[in-house]
Amino acid sequence: MAKVTIDDITIEVPDGTTILQAARMIGGHVVPPAMCYYTKLKTSGGYCRTCLVKVEQGSEKDPRPMPKPVASCRTTVMDGMVVRNTTSPEIQEARAGVVEFLLLNHPLDCPICDQAGECHLQDLSYEHGKEGTRFEFEKRTFDKIDIGEKIQLHMTRCILCYRCVKVADQLTDERVHGVMNRGEVSEISTYIEKAIENDFSGNMIDVCPVGALTDKTFRFKSRVWYTKPMYAHRDCDKCSGKTTLWYQGEDVLRVTGRKDVYGEVEDFICNTCRFDKKLTKDWVIEGPAEIDRHSVIIQNHTEKLIPKEQVQILPNLPGVDFTKKIES
C-alpha cells in the first residue's frame, strides 16, 4: 500500500495505482479531468495532457519534486507522494492552456452535434477553459466518412485521444482504422475506405469523448437531453447484455453501454445489443439510469430521483448554484 496526498487529502491506495485512480478513490473536486485515458483500455492515456498535476514531493524516500507537471493517468503513486491539482494555480493555468489547444481546431458546431449534452470536451471547457478564443486562423477540416453502416466518423471534431484505435486493437480481431499522417494533420482514418465490421466495433462510439464517432442509427433523431435513459438488460451470447436504453416517449432511440460518473462504460456491449434491439420487448427494464447530477441530461427527466441531501453546489463553478435549477 502507498500513502498519497492529493490537494491536502491523504488516502492509502494499493501499489501500482495511478495518481488519477487515487484521486478518483477520493472523488469530488480533486479528480483531474481525463479526455484520453480510459480504465478499460490498456496503454490509453498520456496524450491529451488535461490530467496534468504537480508532484510536489516524489515519495517519502525521495522527497524531491518532479521537475515538470506529470500526466496523472500514467504516473503511479509512490508512498508519501504529495500531489497538487486544484490547489495549484500553475496546474489550473496549464490546464486552461490544454483546453485552449484542444479547442483550437475543434468546430463550434455543438448545436448540430449529436454528442452535445454528453460531450466531455463541452464539460471540460465549461469547467476549465477560458472565455473567447485567441485563434484567428482557419480551422482544419476533414470530410466525414462512414466506417461501416452504423458508425460515422466526423474527423473535424476529433481530439486524437486514440481510444477508438485501442478499442479496435483490443476488442476486435481486425483493425482497419488507425492514425494516419503526422502532427497537426494527423487523422483517424480507414485504410482505403474500408468498413469496420466487427461485433464490438460500436464501442468506439461509447469511448469517443467528443462527437467524432457517432451512432448513425441515432443521428439527428433527438437531443440527448430530450431522451430518458433507462437501465436494461437482456440475455446475450456475445456480451453482458447490460445497457442503457435512451427513450423518447415510447421509442428506444439508441442503446449504449452503462457509463459511470467519468463517462466510462461498465461493460463493452456488442453491436447486436446496440444497433439491432430497439424495441422495449427486447429488454428487461431495470429503472432510470444513474446520471451525474450535473449533467444536462437530467435537467429534463430524472431530477426528482436524486435525494435532496445529495444535491450539492458544483465546487469548480463559484457563484453558480445548481440546486435551484434542479429544484425548480
Binding site: 483493425r175 482497419v176 488507425g178 492514425v179 494516419m180 499522417n181 503526422r182 485504410y191
Partner: peptide
C-alpha cells in the same frame, strides 16, 4: 500484418 498498420507508418514519414 494489417494493411492499416502499413498505411499508418508510411504516412508518418516524410
Amino acid at each position: 500484418i494489417e494493411p492499416v498498420e502499413v498505411f499508418e507508418v508510411a504516412s508518418f514519414y516524410s
